[in-house]
Design a protein around this nucleic acid. Structure first.
Ligand SMILES: [Mn+2]
Ligand SMILES: [Mn+2]
Ligand SMILES: [Zn+2]
Ligand SMILES: [Zn+2]
Lengths: 147, 147
DNA sequence: GTTATTAATGAAAATGATTGTCATTATGAT
DNA sequence: ATCATAATGACAATCATTTTCATTAATAAC
Protein backbone atom coordinates (compact mmCIF):
# COMPACT_ATOMS: atom_id res chain seq x y z
CA UNK A 1 0.00 0.00 0.00
CA UNK A 2 1.23 3.44 -0.90
CA UNK A 3 0.52 5.12 2.42
CA UNK A 4 2.35 2.44 4.37
CA UNK A 5 5.43 3.07 2.23
CA UNK A 6 5.32 6.73 3.03
CA UNK A 7 4.86 6.14 6.73
CA UNK A 8 7.68 3.66 6.85
CA UNK A 9 9.88 6.11 5.03
CA UNK A 10 9.27 8.69 7.78
CA UNK A 11 10.74 6.23 10.28
CA UNK A 12 13.73 5.23 8.18
CA UNK A 13 17.02 6.41 9.61
CA UNK A 14 15.35 7.86 12.67
CA UNK A 15 15.83 6.54 16.20
CA UNK A 16 12.22 5.44 16.09
CA UNK A 17 11.29 1.98 14.88
CA UNK A 18 8.50 0.97 12.54
CA UNK A 19 6.22 -1.27 14.59
CA UNK A 20 3.00 -3.20 14.16
CA UNK A 21 1.12 -0.94 16.57
CA UNK A 22 2.18 2.21 14.75
CA UNK A 23 1.02 0.77 11.46
CA UNK A 24 -2.25 -0.36 13.04
CA UNK A 25 -3.01 3.12 14.40
CA UNK A 26 -2.19 4.82 11.11
CA UNK A 27 -4.20 2.25 9.15
CA UNK A 28 -7.19 2.84 11.39
CA UNK A 29 -7.05 6.62 11.48
CA UNK A 30 -6.38 6.96 7.76
CA UNK A 31 -9.42 4.86 6.93
CA UNK A 32 -12.04 6.60 9.02
CA UNK A 33 -13.70 9.99 9.01
CA UNK A 34 -14.18 9.79 12.76
CA UNK A 35 -12.22 11.75 15.31
CA UNK A 36 -11.40 8.98 17.76
CA UNK A 37 -10.33 9.06 21.39
CA UNK A 38 -7.41 6.94 22.63
CA UNK A 39 -9.86 4.58 24.31
CA UNK A 40 -11.93 4.20 21.13
CA UNK A 41 -8.81 3.48 19.12
CA UNK A 42 -7.78 0.93 21.73
CA UNK A 43 -11.21 -0.75 21.76
CA UNK A 44 -11.21 -0.98 17.99
CA UNK A 45 -7.67 -2.30 17.60
CA UNK A 46 -8.08 -4.81 20.40
CA UNK A 47 -10.35 -6.84 18.12
CA UNK A 48 -7.65 -7.37 15.49
CA UNK A 49 -4.64 -7.10 17.78
CA UNK A 50 -5.41 -8.98 21.01
CA UNK A 51 -2.98 -8.18 23.79
CA UNK A 52 -2.30 -4.66 22.63
CA UNK A 53 -1.94 -2.20 25.51
CA UNK A 54 -3.69 1.10 26.12
CA UNK A 55 -0.49 2.80 27.25
CA UNK A 56 1.12 1.83 23.96
CA UNK A 57 -1.74 3.55 22.16
CA UNK A 58 -1.16 6.70 24.20
CA UNK A 59 2.59 6.61 23.67
CA UNK A 60 2.20 6.18 19.92
CA UNK A 61 -0.49 8.79 19.48
CA UNK A 62 1.84 11.20 21.19
CA UNK A 63 4.74 10.22 18.93
CA UNK A 64 2.68 10.27 15.75
CA UNK A 65 1.28 13.68 16.53
CA UNK A 66 4.75 15.03 17.29
CA UNK A 67 5.81 13.61 13.92
CA UNK A 68 2.91 15.38 12.23
CA UNK A 69 1.25 12.21 10.97
CA UNK A 70 -1.71 12.66 13.28
CA UNK A 71 -3.61 15.66 14.66
CA UNK A 72 -4.59 15.78 18.28
CA UNK A 73 -7.73 17.76 18.94
CA UNK A 74 -9.50 18.96 21.96
CA UNK A 75 -13.10 19.99 21.93
CA UNK A 76 -13.47 20.51 25.65
CA UNK A 77 -14.60 17.01 26.57
CA UNK A 78 -11.76 16.44 29.00
CA UNK A 79 -10.01 14.10 26.61
CA UNK A 80 -8.19 14.31 23.30
CA UNK A 81 -9.34 13.04 19.96
CA UNK A 82 -7.13 12.11 17.05
CA UNK A 83 -7.38 12.22 13.28
CA UNK A 84 -5.08 11.24 10.45
CA UNK A 85 -3.20 14.15 8.96
CA UNK A 86 -2.97 13.72 5.24
CA UNK A 87 0.05 15.33 3.66
CA UNK A 88 -1.74 16.13 0.43
CA UNK A 89 -5.10 17.43 1.58
CA UNK A 90 -5.45 21.03 2.60
CA UNK A 91 -6.06 21.67 6.28
CA UNK A 92 -9.64 21.59 7.41
CA UNK A 93 -11.57 23.02 10.30
CA UNK A 94 -14.34 21.77 12.55
CA UNK A 95 -17.98 22.27 13.28
CA UNK A 96 -18.72 20.99 16.76
CA UNK A 97 -22.22 20.26 17.96
CA UNK A 98 -22.44 21.33 21.59
CA UNK A 99 -25.43 19.08 22.12
CA UNK A 100 -24.38 15.67 20.76
CA UNK A 101 -20.63 16.21 20.36
CA UNK A 102 -20.63 15.46 16.63
CA UNK A 103 -17.62 16.82 14.76
CA UNK A 104 -18.05 17.83 11.14
CA UNK A 105 -15.01 18.53 8.97
CA UNK A 106 -15.27 21.44 6.62
CA UNK A 107 -12.91 23.11 4.24
CA UNK A 108 -15.18 25.60 2.55
CA UNK A 109 -14.02 29.18 2.32
CA UNK A 110 -10.48 28.02 2.76
CA UNK A 111 -9.14 30.42 0.15
CA UNK A 112 -10.57 33.46 1.80
CA UNK A 113 -9.63 32.11 5.19
CA UNK A 114 -6.08 31.41 4.16
CA UNK A 115 -5.85 34.90 2.76
CA UNK A 116 -7.04 36.50 5.96
CA UNK A 117 -5.02 34.14 8.12
CA UNK A 118 -1.90 35.04 6.17
CA UNK A 119 -2.51 38.73 6.77
CA UNK A 120 -3.17 38.16 10.45
CA UNK A 121 -0.03 36.11 10.84
CA UNK A 122 2.08 38.87 9.32
CA UNK A 123 0.55 41.46 11.61
CA UNK A 124 1.01 39.29 14.69
CA UNK A 125 4.62 38.68 13.81
CA UNK A 126 5.16 42.43 13.60
CA UNK A 127 3.10 43.51 16.59
CA UNK A 128 3.82 40.75 19.10
CA UNK A 129 7.04 39.34 17.70
CA UNK A 130 5.24 36.01 17.55
CA UNK A 131 6.03 33.26 15.04
CA UNK A 132 2.83 31.50 13.99
CA UNK A 133 3.25 27.79 13.31
CA UNK A 134 -0.35 26.69 13.08
CA UNK A 135 -3.89 27.82 13.68
CA UNK A 136 -7.22 26.40 14.70
CA UNK A 137 -10.62 27.62 13.70
CA UNK A 138 -13.72 25.94 14.91
CA UNK A 139 -17.38 26.73 15.14
CA UNK A 140 -19.60 25.54 17.95
CA UNK A 141 -23.33 25.23 17.60
CA UNK A 142 -26.12 22.82 16.86
CA UNK A 143 -26.04 20.17 14.16
CA UNK A 144 -28.95 19.30 11.92
CA UNK A 145 -30.13 16.58 14.33
CA UNK A 146 -29.96 18.80 17.41
CA UNK A 147 -31.16 22.17 16.21
CA UNK B 1 -18.81 48.76 42.22
CA UNK B 2 -20.56 48.77 38.89
CA UNK B 3 -19.58 45.27 37.80
CA UNK B 4 -20.77 43.72 41.06
CA UNK B 5 -24.19 45.31 40.49
CA UNK B 6 -24.39 43.79 37.07
CA UNK B 7 -23.32 40.36 38.26
CA UNK B 8 -25.78 40.42 41.10
CA UNK B 9 -28.51 41.42 38.69
CA UNK B 10 -27.80 38.31 36.63
CA UNK B 11 -28.59 36.19 39.69
CA UNK B 12 -31.74 38.08 40.64
CA UNK B 13 -34.91 36.06 40.25
CA UNK B 14 -32.96 32.99 39.23
CA UNK B 15 -32.78 29.80 41.26
CA UNK B 16 -29.11 30.58 41.79
CA UNK B 17 -27.98 32.57 44.80
CA UNK B 18 -25.44 35.35 44.95
CA UNK B 19 -22.64 34.12 47.17
CA UNK B 20 -19.30 35.32 48.50
CA UNK B 21 -17.37 32.72 46.48
CA UNK B 22 -19.07 33.72 43.23
CA UNK B 23 -18.22 37.35 43.84
CA UNK B 24 -14.65 36.42 44.77
CA UNK B 25 -14.13 34.48 41.53
CA UNK B 26 -15.62 37.22 39.36
CA UNK B 27 -13.62 39.91 41.20
CA UNK B 28 -10.43 37.98 40.63
CA UNK B 29 -11.00 37.09 36.99
CA UNK B 30 -12.24 40.55 36.04
CA UNK B 31 -9.14 42.16 37.50
CA UNK B 32 -6.46 40.08 35.82
CA UNK B 33 -5.23 39.58 32.28
CA UNK B 34 -4.19 36.04 33.12
CA UNK B 35 -5.99 32.92 31.99
CA UNK B 36 -6.10 31.02 35.26
CA UNK B 37 -6.63 27.33 36.02
CA UNK B 38 -9.05 26.23 38.73
CA UNK B 39 -6.12 25.38 40.99
CA UNK B 40 -4.51 28.78 40.45
CA UNK B 41 -7.78 30.52 41.25
CA UNK B 42 -8.10 28.38 44.36
CA UNK B 43 -4.54 29.11 45.50
CA UNK B 44 -5.05 32.84 45.01
CA UNK B 45 -8.43 33.07 46.73
CA UNK B 46 -7.34 30.90 49.64
CA UNK B 47 -5.19 33.81 50.85
CA UNK B 48 -8.17 36.16 51.25
CA UNK B 49 -10.81 33.52 51.88
CA UNK B 50 -9.37 30.87 54.19
CA UNK B 51 -11.45 27.72 54.31
CA UNK B 52 -12.70 28.04 50.75
CA UNK B 53 -12.92 24.66 48.95
CA UNK B 54 -11.49 23.59 45.62
CA UNK B 55 -14.67 21.77 44.62
CA UNK B 56 -16.62 24.96 45.20
CA UNK B 57 -14.29 26.72 42.78
CA UNK B 58 -14.93 24.02 40.18
CA UNK B 59 -18.69 24.09 40.68
CA UNK B 60 -18.79 27.86 40.35
CA UNK B 61 -16.52 28.08 37.36
CA UNK B 62 -18.84 25.65 35.67
CA UNK B 63 -21.91 27.68 36.61
CA UNK B 64 -20.37 31.01 35.66
CA UNK B 65 -19.27 29.71 32.30
CA UNK B 66 -22.73 28.28 31.63
CA UNK B 67 -24.12 31.72 32.52
CA UNK B 68 -21.72 33.35 30.08
CA UNK B 69 -19.90 35.43 32.68
CA UNK B 70 -16.70 33.45 32.26
CA UNK B 71 -15.01 31.71 29.33
CA UNK B 72 -13.51 28.29 29.75
CA UNK B 73 -10.58 27.61 27.48
CA UNK B 74 -8.53 24.64 26.64
CA UNK B 75 -5.12 24.91 25.11
CA UNK B 76 -4.27 21.22 25.25
CA UNK B 77 -2.62 21.20 28.65
CA UNK B 78 -4.97 18.61 30.08
CA UNK B 79 -6.75 21.22 32.15
CA UNK B 80 -9.05 24.16 31.60
CA UNK B 81 -8.26 27.80 32.04
CA UNK B 82 -10.77 30.54 32.71
CA UNK B 83 -11.09 34.21 31.86
CA UNK B 84 -13.64 36.90 32.60
CA UNK B 85 -16.04 37.52 29.77
CA UNK B 86 -16.78 41.18 29.51
CA UNK B 87 -20.16 42.03 28.07
CA UNK B 88 -18.99 45.26 26.46
CA UNK B 89 -15.67 44.27 24.95
CA UNK B 90 -15.61 42.61 21.59
CA UNK B 91 -14.58 38.98 21.57
CA UNK B 92 -10.88 38.30 21.35
CA UNK B 93 -8.74 35.42 20.20
CA UNK B 94 -5.55 33.83 21.43
CA UNK B 95 -1.94 33.44 20.53
CA UNK B 96 -0.55 30.40 22.31
CA UNK B 97 3.16 29.80 22.75
CA UNK B 98 3.76 26.09 22.34
CA UNK B 99 7.05 26.39 24.20
CA UNK B 100 6.25 28.27 27.42
CA UNK B 101 2.45 28.12 27.36
CA UNK B 102 1.98 31.88 27.41
CA UNK B 103 -1.40 33.08 26.16
CA UNK B 104 -1.64 36.44 24.45
CA UNK B 105 -5.03 38.04 23.81
CA UNK B 106 -5.46 39.74 20.51
CA UNK B 107 -8.34 41.45 18.80
CA UNK B 108 -6.65 42.84 15.73
CA UNK B 109 -8.32 42.23 12.41
CA UNK B 110 -11.58 41.59 14.16
CA UNK B 111 -13.59 43.51 11.59
CA UNK B 112 -12.28 41.50 8.68
CA UNK B 113 -12.58 38.35 10.72
CA UNK B 114 -16.14 39.06 11.71
CA UNK B 115 -16.96 39.73 8.10
CA UNK B 116 -15.52 36.44 6.93
CA UNK B 117 -16.90 34.56 9.88
CA UNK B 118 -20.37 35.89 9.11
CA UNK B 119 -20.08 34.64 5.54
CA UNK B 120 -18.82 31.26 6.68
CA UNK B 121 -21.62 30.91 9.19
CA UNK B 122 -24.22 31.56 6.52
CA UNK B 123 -22.69 29.01 4.23
CA UNK B 124 -22.42 26.40 6.95
CA UNK B 125 -26.03 26.95 7.92
CA UNK B 126 -27.03 26.31 4.31
CA UNK B 127 -24.68 23.45 3.51
CA UNK B 128 -24.71 21.48 6.76
CA UNK B 129 -27.90 22.75 8.33
CA UNK B 130 -25.76 23.79 11.28
CA UNK B 131 -26.57 26.70 13.60
CA UNK B 132 -23.38 28.45 14.64
CA UNK B 133 -23.44 29.83 18.19
CA UNK B 134 -19.82 30.70 18.70
CA UNK B 135 -16.40 30.29 17.19
CA UNK B 136 -12.80 29.98 18.29
CA UNK B 137 -9.75 31.08 16.44
CA UNK B 138 -6.32 30.62 17.87
CA UNK B 139 -2.79 30.65 16.62
CA UNK B 140 -0.06 28.42 17.98
CA UNK B 141 3.58 29.27 17.67
CA UNK B 142 6.52 30.83 19.48
CA UNK B 143 6.34 33.99 21.55
CA UNK B 144 9.00 36.69 21.56
CA UNK B 145 10.84 35.03 24.47
CA UNK B 146 10.85 31.57 22.92
CA UNK B 147 11.46 32.18 19.23
C1' DG C 1 20.83 -16.44 9.52
C1' DT C 2 22.66 -15.44 14.21
C1' DT C 3 23.66 -12.15 17.59
C1' DA C 4 23.78 -7.88 20.05
C1' DT C 5 21.83 -3.47 21.08
C1' DT C 6 18.26 -0.98 22.68
C1' DA C 7 13.61 0.91 21.44
C1' DA C 8 8.98 -0.63 22.14
C1' DT C 9 5.66 -3.09 24.64
C1' DG C 10 1.98 -4.66 28.25
C1' DA C 11 0.63 -4.74 32.92
C1' DA C 12 0.03 -2.35 36.77
C1' DA C 13 0.69 1.48 39.68
C1' DA C 14 0.82 6.46 40.02
C1' DT C 15 -0.66 10.97 38.90
C1' DG C 16 -3.54 14.98 38.12
C1' DA C 17 -7.81 17.18 36.93
C1' DT C 18 -12.43 17.00 37.69
C1' DT C 19 -16.84 15.24 39.68
C1' DG C 20 -19.87 13.08 43.20
C1' DT C 21 -21.50 12.39 48.05
C1' DC C 22 -23.12 14.01 52.22
C1' DA C 23 -23.57 16.40 56.42
C1' DT C 24 -23.44 21.32 57.59
C1' DT C 25 -24.07 26.27 56.58
C1' DA C 26 -25.73 30.46 54.45
C1' DT C 27 -28.94 32.87 51.27
C1' DG C 28 -33.24 34.89 50.10
C1' DA C 29 -38.17 34.67 50.59
C1' DT C 30 -41.84 34.97 53.90
C1' DA D 1 -36.89 35.58 63.11
C1' DT D 2 -38.13 31.50 60.59
C1' DC D 3 -38.15 28.41 56.83
C1' DA D 4 -36.95 25.96 52.59
C1' DT D 5 -33.33 24.76 50.09
C1' DA D 6 -29.18 26.16 47.36
C1' DA D 7 -24.36 26.33 48.31
C1' DT D 8 -20.46 24.82 50.73
C1' DG D 9 -16.16 22.10 52.38
C1' DA D 10 -14.15 17.73 53.25
C1' DC D 11 -13.25 13.73 51.26
C1' DA D 12 -13.96 9.85 48.28
C1' DA D 13 -14.48 8.44 43.59
C1' DT D 14 -13.76 8.71 38.70
C1' DC D 15 -11.53 9.34 34.43
C1' DA D 16 -7.79 10.40 31.20
C1' DT D 17 -3.14 10.19 30.93
C1' DT D 18 1.71 9.14 32.42
C1' DT D 19 5.22 6.47 34.62
C1' DT D 20 7.69 2.28 35.97
C1' DC D 21 9.75 -1.92 35.03
C1' DA D 22 10.50 -6.45 33.47
C1' DT D 23 9.94 -8.66 28.93
C1' DT D 24 9.82 -8.68 23.84
C1' DA D 25 10.81 -7.34 19.22
C1' DA D 26 13.01 -4.30 15.54
C1' DT D 27 17.17 -3.17 13.46
C1' DA D 28 22.04 -3.26 12.50
C1' DA D 29 26.41 -5.73 12.69
C1' DC D 30 28.48 -9.90 12.09
MN1 LIG E 1 -11.21 16.71 11.30
MN1 LIG F 1 -8.19 35.66 26.55
ZN1 LIG G 1 -25.79 17.37 17.43
ZN1 LIG H 1 6.92 31.31 24.91
Amino acid sequence: MVLAHMWRHRFKGDVFRWTLTRKAILDLLSSTLKHMSAQEIYDTLLKSYPGIGLSTIYRNLDLLSRMGLVNRLNIGEGKSRYEYRSSEEKAHHHLICTNCGKIIDYSDFLDEELDLVGKIEKKLARKYNFIVKDHNIDFCGLCKDCR
